[in-house]
Structure formats: C-alpha cells, structure tokens
C-alpha cells in the first residue's frame, strides 16, 4: 500500500464545536460551555489515484473529516496536509486550492436553483480564471459530455433534472477545475439504488482516467466495498479500524466493524460460519462520550479495562485497530 505520493494526510487531526447555549441562558441555568468533539485525533494518508473510504453511523464525524479535508473547517488540533503542506497554507494559494474539490450529498441542495447548469459547471473555471470567453462554454460542453449529459443541458436550470442527473452536474462542476483530489460526501445516498451504481461507476471511470484521489464518505458498506482501496471505520469521532479495504472486509478485527458488516443483508453471507453478534443501542452523544473505549456500552467483548482506558491503535497485519480485545487476542472471531 505504500506506493505512490501522498496527496492528503491527516495527523492526529481533531475538531471540536462549541454547542453551548447562549450566554444569558447559560448564566441562568448555571452551566458551563459545552463542547462537541466531532473528530478526535484522526490520522490517515491517501496516495495518488487511490480511494480512502470513511464509514460509520450518522453522527460519527465522517462528514466533518470531509470538510476538514477541503479546508471548510480548520482543525482545532493536529494537522491536515495537502501535498506535504499544511492545508491552511495550501488553501491560501489558488493554484493549490484549484486542485481539490468536493461532491456533496444532496443533489437538490448542492446546485444553486437560480443558476443555469452551464454557469454552475463553469463557476470553478471562472473563479480560478482557467479559461475565458468561448473556451469556457466549450469546456463546459466537454465536461457535461464526460459525465453523461448533453452539452445542450447547460441551458437548463437544476430543477429540470432528476436526482441522478443533478449529481452528474455536481460531478461535472467538481471536475471543471481539473482537481487531483476530491472529497465525496455521501454522493449516492440521496439517489435511487439503480442510479447509485451508475454514479459510482462514473466516479471510478473518472478516477481511472484522470488519476484522481478520492476521500469517499459513506454509511453504506456495499458502496464502500465497490469504491475503496483504503478503509477507515469511524465511531464517535475516532477511526477505530484502518487498513486496506480487502483485508478489513475479509477479516474485520474491531467488534464495531464486525457489527457493521453483519448488518449488511447480503445473500453471500447467509451460509457464513461467522457468528453474528447482534448489537443494539444507539450511538452515544459525542458531547458527553463514554469513558475509556467509547464503544464499550455496545460492545459484546467489553471488560473493565475497556471502560477505563482509551485503546491505542495496534497493528495486526496491514490493519490498524483500536481495541483492547484485539490487542489482547481475545474475541478474535
């Protein structure tokens, strides 16, 4: 996995949000500030032309990681590096900023309803002054063709398209500045299953053709399996298991990963000898996370140590897992 130049690297990156109530109410209720740790010391590295997927339940901080990765948020601890430079330094330079972009989850909210599609797609081209005059329209036509639309669709407004078509427009916009790194924040979760596959195949096609690096965020393991080279499983702001996708899908180490894999209703797994461990419960609040390993209230393998001590990442083969049980060798299914 070590081949290739590292495009994006997170080093112990954290991000907290102040979710305190307004000052007056805090004074009246005599409570302090409240901080939500959305992302807690997350580390990863994506090499050129590869896909790192982040999976996890909603509220686990995966979208926050995505926004950190394109600089929409500043990390409140640790560092994110783009091409070896700190991201905030990199984003200060338009030449580097041009090389990253983002595809969003909701194709109904990610396109400005008052703009023509050609203007939407051309926006990054104009913002970075890559082309001018007629060349812009020619390039927009090319881009629309590339994502499977017609150049004449540029005349239309977003509401004239279906969800899948809008997502294609969104991809065309993301590609228009010829980025090398794309954050895809649940790009298919708002789409019909039949359309999801088309969009995913389109994205893989484009990756193969243009050597784009993806940070792919999803809660859908089937989608992730289709897309990823590297996989990070997130739980409550931490990456609990991190490694090559095939290794993790073949032999999940962390009990949470196993829970997620078991939850896929997959016919191929019907005859599997692996014991299914049904784990109930909700994700605890990240404002007041459980002590020790944050997964312990839902974990079938939890013991006293898990409740007290935060697990460190330990290497098992080419996979990193943050779990006392894995480290101690108990419960390795």
């Amino acid at each position: 996995m070590a081949e290739g130049r590292i495009v994006l690297e997170a080093i112990e990156a954290s991000r907290s949000f102040d979710v305190s109530r307004p000052w007056l109410q805090r004074m009246v209720a005599r409570e302090g500030r409240r901080v939500l740790r959305a992302v807690d010391a997350v580390s990863f590295a994506v090499t050129v032309g590869r896909t790192l997927s982040l999976v996890g339940e909603s509220g686990c901080g995966k979208s926050t990681v995505g926004r950190l990765a394109v600089g929409l948020y500043e990390p409140s601890g640790g560092e994110i590096r783009f091409e070896g430079q700190s991201l905030s330094t990199a984003r200060a330079q338009p030449a580097l900023r041009r090389r990253m972009n983002m595809i969003f989850q909701d194709p109904y909210a990610s396109l400005n309803p008052r703009w023509r599609v050609s203007d939407i797609v051309a926006e990054p081209i104009r913002a970075f002054r890559l082309l001018s005059g007629r060349d812009v329209q020619d390039r927009v036509g090319q881009l629309l063709t590339q994502v499977g639309l017609s150049p004449r669709d540029g005349e239309k407004y977003p509401h004239e398209f279906s969800g899948g078509q809008r997502q294609r427009v969104s991809i065309a916009r993301a590609l228009s500045s010829e980025p090398e790194f794309l954050v895809c924040d649940e790009p298919t979760s708002a789409l019909d299953v039949s359309v999801q596959a088309q969009i995913l195949n389109l994205m893989r096609d484009l990756q193969a053709r243009m050597q784009i690096t993806y940070l792919f965020i999803s809660h859908n393991l089937a989608v992730v399996r289709h897309m990823s080279d590297l996989l990070g499983v997130m739980y409550l702001g931490r990456i609990v298991e991190y490694g090559p996708g095939e290794s993790i899908f073949a032999a999940p180490r962390h009990p949470y990963t196993r829970l997620l894999l078991d939850a896929i209703p997959d016919l191929g797994m019907a005859g599997s000898t692996r014991a299914r461990t049904p784990v109930g419960g909700e994700v605890p609040s990240p404002i007041n996370p459980p002590s020790g390993c944050t997964f312990h209230p839902r974990c079938p393998l939890a013991n006293a140590r898990c409740r007290a001590e935060v697990p460190k990442h330990t290497r098992d083969g080419d996979v990193l897992a943050a779990c006392h049980a894995v480290e101690e060798g108990r419960g390795a299914g």
């Binding site: 909701d106 990054p124 970075f128 969104s170």
Partner: peptide
C-alpha cells in the same frame, strides 16, 4: 450545500452573498 461548494473553491464571502444567496 451550494454555498459550501462555492466556499470550497475559495470564493469570497461578498461574492457568495451577491451571486449565490441574493438571487
């Protein structure tokens, strides 16, 4: 998200307000 998309490519707040939000 369309406002976020504009912020990702680094448009200034003034330009986002006038060209994206105002209409």
């Amino acid at each position: 998200e369309y406002v976020m998309a504009a912020r990702v490519i680094g448009l200034s707040s003034g330009r986002i307000m006038l060209t994206h939000i105002l209409p």
